[in-house]
Amino acid sequence: MDKQKIIVGATGASGMPILVRCLELIRQNGKYESCLVMSRSARLTLEQETGLRAEEIYPLADKVLQEDQTGAGPASGTFPTKGMLIVPCSMKTLAGIHSGYGENLIQRAADVTMKEQRTLVLAVRETPLSPIHLRNMQELSMIPGVHIVPPMMTFYHKPKTIEEMTDHIAAKLLEHFGIEAEGYRRWQGI
């Protein structure tokens, strides 16, 4: 059986350890494969936050495309995917997606994902949030299949390390595609 593709976009916002963990979790799941597209700013932020160069994480993806490859498969609705995850998603990228401005492959693929009504998960990163950020998120969240999932810390699962927090957020992002990460601890109630 063919694996389902998940397009993974990464932009220049903070949160690169979450990107790395998402790629690892997709690779571990035998039903999915990833197609990674990183912006120039994402590559710079990756190095700053993790000490890794983009070329060092490329092997975690099944396919790697460049942001200027606007004619690549993910730019077309006929390219079969389960959907798209943008982690982290900068407010610049969010604004581009909101306005339909397909400046690069990340924004174009997100636009295609929405028009085809596939799952689009945006791990938006900024704080504090301006009224413009909030408006863009609110309006996008009303589109079927779009999930706004800021990578917020949670404590109900009693994390002891930053890695446990990163794992939890990555699992939360990927559950929208039907990926159940091993060790993911959901809220059990009181």
Rank of each mutant, 00 (worst) to 15 (best):
Q28I: 08
N29E: 15
G30Q: 15
G30D: 15
K31V: 06
Y32H: 14
S34H: 13
S34W: 13
V37E: 11
V37C: 13
R40V: 13
R40M: 05
S41Q: 11
A42Q: 09
A42R: 08
L44C: 00
T45W: 02
T45S: 11
L46G: 02
E47S: 10
E47N: 13
E47V: 00
E47I: 00
E49L: 07
T50C: 10
L52M: 15
R53M: 12
R53P: 00
E55R: 11
E55S: 14
E56D: 14
Y58N: 09
Y58W: 12
Y58Q: 11
P59S: 07
P59W: 07
L60Q: 07
L60P: 05
D62Y: 07
K63M: 13
Q66F: 14
D68I: 05
D68C: 01
Q69F: 06
T70K: 11
T70Q: 11
G71C: 07
A72Q: 09
G73S: 10
G73F: 10
P74T: 12
A75C: 08
A75H: 09
S76N: 13
G77Q: 06
G77R: 04
T78M: 08
F79C: 12
F79V: 08
P80A: 12
K82T: 11
G83F: 04
M84K: 01
I86Q: 02
P88E: 08
S90Q: 04
M91E: 04
K92D: 14
T93R: 00
T93W: 03
L94T: 06
L94Y: 01
G96I: 03
I97P: 01
Y101F: 14
Y101W: 12
Y101D: 04
Y101T: 09
G102I: 02
G102L: 01
N104E: 11
I106C: 02
Q107Y: 02
Q107S: 11
A110D: 08
D111I: 00
V112C: 01
V112A: 00
V112R: 01
M114N: 00
K115E: 08
K115S: 04
E116V: 00
Q117C: 01
R118C: 00
R118K: 15
R118G: 00
T119D: 01
T119E: 11
V121C: 03
V121T: 05
L122A: 06
V124A: 03
V124Q: 05
R125W: 06
T127E: 12
T127P: 02
P128R: 10
L129R: 03
L134I: 15
L134N: 02
L140G: 04
L140H: 02
S141G: 08
